[in-house]
Amino acid sequence: MYDNPLTKRDAVTKEVKISARGCQVYYGDTHAIKDVDVDIEDKTVTAFIGPSGCGKSTFLRCLNRMNDTIDVCRVEGDIRLDGEDIYDPKVDPVQLRAKVGMVFQKPNPFPKSIYDNVAYGPKIHGMSRNKAELDEIVERALRRGAIWDEVKDRLDAPGTGLSGGQQQRLCIARAVATEPEVLLMDEPCSALDPIATAQVEELIDELREQYSVVIVTHSMQQAARVSQKTAFFHLGNLVEYGETGQIFTNPQDPRTESYITGRIG
């Protein structure tokens, strides 16, 4: 699966979208993320890889403050989106999450119609003035989610009735409908079969044109296929971060090398 020509990857440094400095996360007494510094670039797919429990999902959830919904979780350090501290007391997580969308491991469509699933975000953020505009937003999102052709005739059908891969693409469409600037994806393909996975990966590659995409994945092949930058997490530490090609072909840290060659994980 390493047949992707890694060297062809676009290695031009882009504008930094999110920067984290000295980020610490505690779950009760457990120190889950230890002093992570990372810069996530705009219009780039960044992959977080690492063995289970290494903290990559936890760190991802810090980026749009989803960890706020967990009582015992405490985040320290400095995370900035476009230079603004997202943990500033003045920041409303609701507004933040409109800018930093998220797609989850398990497809989780609301038990509503396909249309309402996609229209939900634009509705709560007041992005449309009338029904026609909303229709337009929904169609655009569904097209971006690469699922429009499959569902355009049954927008009123419940979203839960779709297949797993369709559900996940619906969830991606739902996330892009709010026009986020960053899209976080937490193992978006782990519940999908290979064909659906390929479809979603293709989609991620297309989304890169407009968004900064951060993807957590278990599969190194997937990281190699879709990302330009890769971060390797191990036991709560960010071990190595760099160009995907470089991480996979010439890792600097022995732990990264062991993981990539399959000795830990």
Partner: peptide, 9 residues
Amino acid sequence: MTDATDPSA
């Protein structure tokens, strides 16, 4: 996956 590149999208 043509629809994602559809101009109208």
